[in-house]
Simulated assay, not measured.
Amino acid sequence: MPVPSNTLRKALVAWLYAAALVHLLVSIILTWVGPSGWLDVYLQNVDYAFWTDLPPRAAREQQLWWFAVFGATLQSYSLYMLGLVRIGNRLKSPMAWGWLIAGIVLWAPQDMWFSLTAQLWVNLWIDGFALLTLLPPLIWLYRHDRRAASSNTPPSDADHA
């Protein structure tokens, strides 16, 4: 039995809200808990991509600094994502979904390429998961809201000529 499109739309929007909030949580962790040891397992994977032994202390400190800077940037991105999901949901705007799609399509190939060249397989897995869990719902919402908008479009003056 097919799921009604309104129910599916609500579920996909809820999923995107959750994804944006997870991005926000992860970004806060990257910014503020790097020195606490929470990132050690991940950092060990990164270490093996760039160092044959443990990295020098200065390199690790710089790495944690980059994580903090990246986390702060990701916090901002997370808020933009939350805002676009809210706009897309409230206004049923395909444009909001389109901008989110464009951002992901711009980000993913670059991030995946850099991860591949550094042989950071965990990053490729994370990127692949993000693509598979974000793009299909966004594309569906874009198409659904575009169809709904075009069926509700009032005739223009050109239609009366």
Rank of each mutant, 00 (worst) to 15 (best):
A19K: 00
D157L: 15
P109W: 03
L135R: 02
I87L: 14
A130E: 03
W97A: 12
V22C: 05
D40E: 15
L141N: 01
V69Q: 12
W32P: 00
A118R: 10
Q62D: 13
L124K: 03
L141H: 04
Y42T: 09
P154Y: 11
A72N: 10
P136Q: 05
E61V: 00
V41C: 06
V41L: 12
L74R: 08
R86M: 10
L91A: 14
L120I: 11
L124M: 09
S150K: 12
S76D: 10
Q63N: 06
L24E: 01
H144L: 11
Q44H: 10
V3L: 14
S78N: 02
L84H: 12
P4V: 05
A11M: 02
L39F: 02
W107N: 05
W99G: 02
F114C: 07
P55L: 06
Q75P: 05
L134I: 04
Y48T: 09
T133K: 03
V3M: 13
N123K: 03
A161L: 14
W107Q: 08
V33T: 13
P136R: 04
V41Q: 14
I139L: 01
V3Y: 05
I104H: 11
L30H: 04
R147S: 15
A20E: 01
P136N: 01
P109H: 08
L134V: 05
L43V: 03
S151G: 10
D111L: 06
L134D: 00
G83W: 15
W113Q: 06
R9V: 00
V33L: 14
L134C: 04
L106K: 07
L132C: 04
A161D: 14
P55N: 00
S78M: 01
F114T: 13
W97V: 03
A68I: 04
A158D: 12
S5T: 11
I104S: 11
A14I: 00
M81Y: 14
T117Y: 04
M81V: 08
Q44V: 09
L138M: 02
I126D: 00
W99F: 10
K10N: 05
D145P: 07
V69D: 05
F70Y: 07
A19G: 03
P94V: 02
T153S: 14
A19T: 01
R60N: 07
S150T: 11
P56T: 05
F50D: 04
L43A: 08
D157V: 14
Q119E: 12
Q119D: 15
L24T: 05
L106Q: 10
V33P: 00
L141A: 06
I126F: 07
T73L: 15
N152Q: 15
A68M: 02
R90D: 11
A19V: 01
Y17S: 06
R90Q: 13
S93N: 01
H144K: 10
P4D: 12
D157C: 12
A149V: 08
L141K: 00
T153C: 15
V13I: 12
R146Q: 09
W32R: 07
L138E: 03
R86K: 14
G98D: 01
L74N: 10
Y142E: 00
P155V: 15
W66L: 09
R86T: 13
R90G: 06
D127R: 04
M81T: 08
P4C: 08
V22W: 07
L116G: 12
A158E: 12
G103Y: 02
G83Y: 15
V26S: 10
L84G: 00
W125V: 11
N152E: 13
F129T: 08
Y77C: 07
V26Q: 10
Y80F: 15
S27A: 06
